[in-house]
């Protein structure tokens, strides 16, 4: 690839009807860029969980995809309640999801953990009552 690719997707909180729309679009873009199968899988999981976190917990958010020759970068920034205790939120199985969210099969407390597992670099910062920011980097040749 000669030049980097960048695109931002806005995601509306509590809109489960459109859940996955940004993730599906991002996957199609990466497929067109002929990204390796395993990298595609990791990126799809990380983006989907990020998108669902915005929908499940925040008022709104943006997912920015930036692809260069070596890495896939995903920045997720939301406006919402933020996370009080990040270490706790990172623990698999810990969730603050409502009953409504759980009934749909979301809110199992695997989201952030799965994002981290799929990332080569994962940074999370959050300010309660302001929002949460995820920085995800997945190497294009990384296995």
């Amino acid at each position: 690839m000669n030049r980097a690719y960048e695109k931002t997707f806005s995601v509306e909180g509590d809109n489960f009807d459109n859940a996955g729309t940004a993730s599906i679009e991002i996957k199609k873009i990466l497929k067109d860029l002929r990204i390796d199968e395993d990298v595609l899988r990791k990126t799809a999981i990380a983006v989907y969980e990020s998108e669902l976190n915005i929908i499940s917990y925040a008022r709104s958010g943006n997912i920015t995809l930036y692809v260069d020759d070596d890495t896939i970068n995903i920045d997720v920034e939301d406006e919402g309640p933020g996370i009080e205790d990040i270490d706790l939120a990172m623990q698999p199985g810990y969730s603050t999801a409502t009953e409504h969210i759980r009934q749909m099969g979301f809110g199992a407390g695997m989201g952030l953990y799965n994002i981290k597992s799929c990332s080569d670099l994962f940074e999370i910062s959050s300010t309660p009552n302001v929002g949460t920011h995820l920085k995800i980097i997945i190497k294009r040749n990384g296995r």
């Binding site: 859940a19 996955g20 729309t21 993730s23 599906i24 996957k27 999981i45 989907y48 749909m104 099969g105």
Partner: peptide, 16 residues
């Protein structure tokens, strides 16, 4: 194979 039947299952199946 699932018992979930709402539209969100399609995004998962499509992505995977």
């Amino acid at each position: 194979i699932t018992r979930q039947s709402h539209q969100n299952i399609i995004a998962v199946a499509s992505l995977r």
